[in-house]
């Protein structure tokens, strides 16, 4: 769950050179992801990725109250990484972030590179690295899978917020103590990350009951092709 505090950065928080720098980083990373993602999905199967991006988008529309007056929504970095893999997952999430900026003015246009880097790339990558490291545990038992998904959700949220701290250190506008900023931002997102982790775990658990073959993380390599290709 995400209160959008450090998530959708607005314009003016980072200076222009830093904004452009992270735009370039996001573009290079996405090009790499598109190239690597072709192992899992190609131009012909891209429509499937479109539906999965719509799923992630719809999940972000789902706000629920956390405390009176505070509502949050799933951000989905770890969920995308576990279900779709790091490459396709980050491609789908980056489309979600870009379209939200253009359609809803959610996040600044110049901060788009930084926002894609944090949410679609860093968060997904961190979630996947955690999940991959613990894949053995995830395959062993249902409880293992749920704990790995929880941890990946937590870590991905914290990683995305840590991306903001790094960006602010490079191109932030005020001379604030970075230790203090990092403490507040990462602390808040560690709490938010617990919610993200719980939802990620329960959602992955629900899918594992019915179609474990669709979960990228625990799929065996020969079954890795999307079902649509097999037909």
């Amino acid at each position: 769950m995400t209160a959008s505090v450090a998530m959708h950065l607005s314009d003016g928080v980072l200076d222009a050179p830093t904004s452009l720098l992270f735009g370039a980083i996001a573009a290079v990373w996405l090009t790499l992801a598109a190239a690597r993602g072709r192992i899992d999905i190609d131009d012909r199967t891209a429509p499937l990725a479109g539906l999965l991006a719509a799923f992630l988008f719809a999940m972000q529309l789902l706000n629920f109250p956390v405390l009176p007056g505070v509502s949050g929504h799933l951000y989905g970095g770890a969920l995308a990484a576990i279900l779709l893999g790091p490459w396709v997952g980050s491609l789908c999430l980056s489309v979600v972030v870009v379209i939200q900026a253009l359609l809803f003015a959610d996040g600044g246009l110049t901060a788009l590179g930084a926002n894609v880097t944090n949410m679609a790339l860093l968060g997904t990558a961190a979630g996947f690295v955690v999940a991959l490291a613990a894949r053995g545990v995830a395959r062993r038992s249902r409880a293992g899978l749920l704990s790995v998904a929880f941890l990946a959700g937590l870590v991905s949220t914290v990683a995305a917020s840590a991306g903001f701290v790094v960006e602010y250190a490079i191109g932030g506008q005020a001379d604030v103590s970075l230790g203090g900023l990092a403490g507040v931002v990462i602390g808040v997102h560690a709490v938010i990350g617990i919610g993200e982790g719980v939802i990620t775990a329960l959602a992955v658990g629900a899918i594992a009951r019915v179609r474990p073959d669709l979960i990228y993380l625990v799929r065996t390599s020969e079954a890795r092709q999307p079902a649509a290709v097999a037909s």
Binding site: A34, A46, A49, G50, A53, L91, C92, V95, V98
Partner: peptide, 10 residues
């Protein structure tokens, strides 16, 4: 191209 396809269907 992948961006356009995913965004259109999304």
């Amino acid at each position: 191209g992948w961006f356009i396809t995913i965004a259109t269907l999304m």
